[in-house]
Simulated scan of single mutants.
Amino acid sequence: MKAQSLLASMLIGAISLQTISASADNNFRDVLDIPAAITELASKQLITGLTLAGERIVGVGRRGHIVYSDDGGGTWLQSKVPVSSDLNAVHFPSPKVGWAVGHDGVVLRTTDGGLSWERKLDVRMAQKLFATPEQADSDQASKTELSFLGVWFETQERGFVVGAFNQIFRTTDGGNSWELWSERAENPMGLHLYAVRAIGEDVYICGESGLVMKLDRQAGQFRLLDTGYGGTFFGVTGTPGYILAYGLRGNIFRSIDGGKNWRKVEGNISTSLVADGVTQTGEVLLLSTDGQVIRSPVNGEHFRKIPGLSAVPVAASIVPLNDDKSFVVGGGRGLSKQALR
C-alpha cells in the first residue's frame, strides 16, 4: 500500500514562512546549509506528505521537518534532516529506503526507515550538473528556481522526481547521478507537474491544464494522454484495473484502458482534491483541502464522503494504516488520526 500527498503550489506558498528576503543581515545562512531544527512542534505544523515505511508512518513538511510514528500515529518523533527547505512529498520503495523532495531542488534519501536523511540533490548541485559552460562561468545557474512536488521510486535505486515548470529528474543509482528528463516529456508549455505514480506496470505524471502523461518505457519518453479536461490534476492513483486523476474543484476522471479513454466520476464534493491513499483492501481515499475524505469501495466508480471526521485546516496529505480501520491526515496544524469505518 502506498499513499502520496499532492499539494498545489499555491497552498505551499500560502503556508510557507520560509521565504527569504533580501536584507542587510550579515548573518544570513541559506536554508540548504541549515539542518532542520529539532522541535516538539514538528508534528503540529504543516505536513505535506505522508506514507508508510513498513508499519512506520513517515510525514514530511515545513522547514525540513520529517516525523515518524511506530505506534499508529499515537506518538511522533523527529528525524535528523540536513536542510531546512520545505518538503512536499515522500515515498518508500522498501521499509528501510525512502525518498523525500521539496523546494530548492532538495532530494533526500534514508536507508534506516526515516530516522536520518542524507542530501542526494539540491538546486546548487543540479545547476552545476546541467549548466552550460556560459552559465557556470556567470553563476547564472545557481539562481535558477527548482522545486520538486512529487517523487516515485521503482526500486531502492531507480526512480523519478518531478516539479514546477516540467522539471523531471531520473536516477538509476540511488541518487549518485541524475539525468534531466524534461525534454523527454510531451509538455511543450512547461506546465507544472504535481505527482508521479506507478499504477500496475505503468508510470504516470499529472499536472496543470488536465495534463496526464504515461511512460513509454521502450522509447524512454512520457507520452501525453487526452483526458478531455482542462483543469489542474494534483494526483493520480488507482490499481492495475483502473486509473484515477483528481484535482481542482473535486474533479475526478477515470480510465480503465491505460489512459486511452477517460470518463468523469462524480465525487459529490466541490473543493479541490489534493492527496490520496489506497487501503489494503483496494479502497481509494481522496482528501480535499478542507479536510473532507471521500472513498470508493469498488474500482473507483463511485465515491461517498466519510462522515464524522475531525476538522483538519488546510488538509494536505493522507495515508491509510495497515489495520484498514483508520488513516492519518496531515494539515496546517499537524497530524490527526481518523477512523475509516
Rank of each mutant, 00 (worst) to 15 (best):
L248H: 08
R263M: 02
S255L: 01
W262R: 02
N251S: 10
T279R: 13
A275M: 15
L248F: 07
G250I: 08
L286M: 09
V278Y: 15
G267Q: 12
V274P: 07
A275D: 14
V274S: 03
D276Y: 14
K260Y: 02
I269S: 09
G259V: 02
E266R: 07
N261T: 09
R263F: 12
E283K: 10
Y246A: 03
S270I: 04
V265R: 11
D276T: 12
A245P: 13
S255H: 00
G247C: 11
A275G: 14
L248C: 08
G277F: 10
G259F: 01
T281W: 03
A245C: 13
I256D: 07
L273Q: 13
E283Y: 07
S272T: 12
G277C: 08
N268V: 03
N268F: 03
E283A: 01
W262E: 02
F253I: 09
A245W: 06
V284A: 05
G247A: 04
Y246H: 04
N261P: 03
V274Y: 13
A275R: 13
V265A: 12
S270E: 04
S270V: 06
Y246K: 04
F253K: 14
G250F: 08
L248K: 13
I256T: 15
G258T: 07
L286Y: 15
T271L: 08
D257P: 05
D276N: 10
N268I: 00
T281F: 11
G258I: 01
G258A: 01
T281N: 14
R249F: 03
Y246V: 00
G267T: 11
K264N: 06
K260I: 03
N261I: 02
Y246Q: 05
R249N: 12
A275P: 15
A245L: 05
S270Q: 07
L286A: 14
G247V: 13
E283P: 04
F253G: 10
L273M: 08
R254T: 08
I256R: 07
G282T: 07
T271W: 00
I252K: 03
K264E: 08
G258P: 02
S272M: 13
